[in-house]
Design a protein around this nucleic acid. Structure first.
Length: 210
DNA sequence: TGCCAGGCCCTCTTTAGGGCCTT
């Protein structure tokens, strides 16, 4: 894939922006020419309390958030880093919800398309024990660098898993031009028929170059 | 008062239910 894409991960106060939860940390990692490149990462202060459960899960404390830049500054920096790139997240519905919510709260108009590494993984690695980020890292033999449930470590790991998945798709099915559009199509193919669909796509691409 | 996320995905389905995944 020669298009610049950006992997994004939020740490938040809970599971839903709609019920008042807010982002407290964000990281974005770019992928260019199939290689992991620059990153953007920051804690952010939305002015809300961090629940003890979240501190236990992430290690992010109320003191850390209070001394962080406010949400406006961080989301502006994130918008500059992301630009108009397609975004990738593990369980994208979650991160897309917070991305849209936090951008709107700061008056920033962004409509980046999202790809879901979880949905792709379910189709490419149907035999994995499960499709949690940590399990997938073990399954494709990628070591974690950093701490789970911190934004930069999770985004970087997601980026390296995504690059590996794209490489496996190319190698397994003979697909050379692995575009964002093709991955969006793959996400909508039923899990049970993804293997046959990718085989067909690879065959058609090979036939088209003869 | 009682409840409190929500989209994806499979199956003992489709007039539904429950597990998976994210924090």
């Amino acid at each position: 894939m020669d298009q610049r894409i950006v992997v994004i991960d939020f740490e938040t106060t809970g599971l839903s922006a709609r019920t008042g939860d807010r982002a407290i940390e964000v990281a974005a990692v770019e992928i260019i020419d199939g290689q992991v490149g620059r990153h953007f990462a920051s804690l952010m202060n939305p002015g809300v309390h961090v629940p003890s459960f979240i501190t236990g899960l992430t290690g992010i404390t109320n003191a850390m958030v209070r001394s962080a830049p406010d949400s406006m500054a961080v989301m502006r920096g994130l918008a500059q880093f992301v630009e108009d790139a397609p975004l990738v997240a593990h369980n994208a519905a979650f991160d897309a919800g917070f991305y849209g919510h936090e951008m709107r709260m700061q008056g920033i108009d962004r409509e980046n398309p999202f790809l879901c590494s979880l949905r792709v993984a379910r189709r490419i690695y149907p035999r994995a024990p499960n499709h949690k980020l940590s399990t997938l890292a073990d399954y494709v033999d990628i070591p974690m660098q950093g701490t789970f449930h911190r934004a930069l470590a999770d985004a970087d790991l997601t980026a390296r898993i995504f690059v590996t998945m794209c490489g496996d798709i190319r190698a397994r099915y003979g697909i050379r031009s692995l575009s964002v559009a093709l991955l969006e199509r793959l996400q909508s193919v039923r899990v049970a028929s993804a293997d046959a669909w990718l085989t067909k796509v690879g065959y058609e691409e090979t036939a088209g170059t003869r």
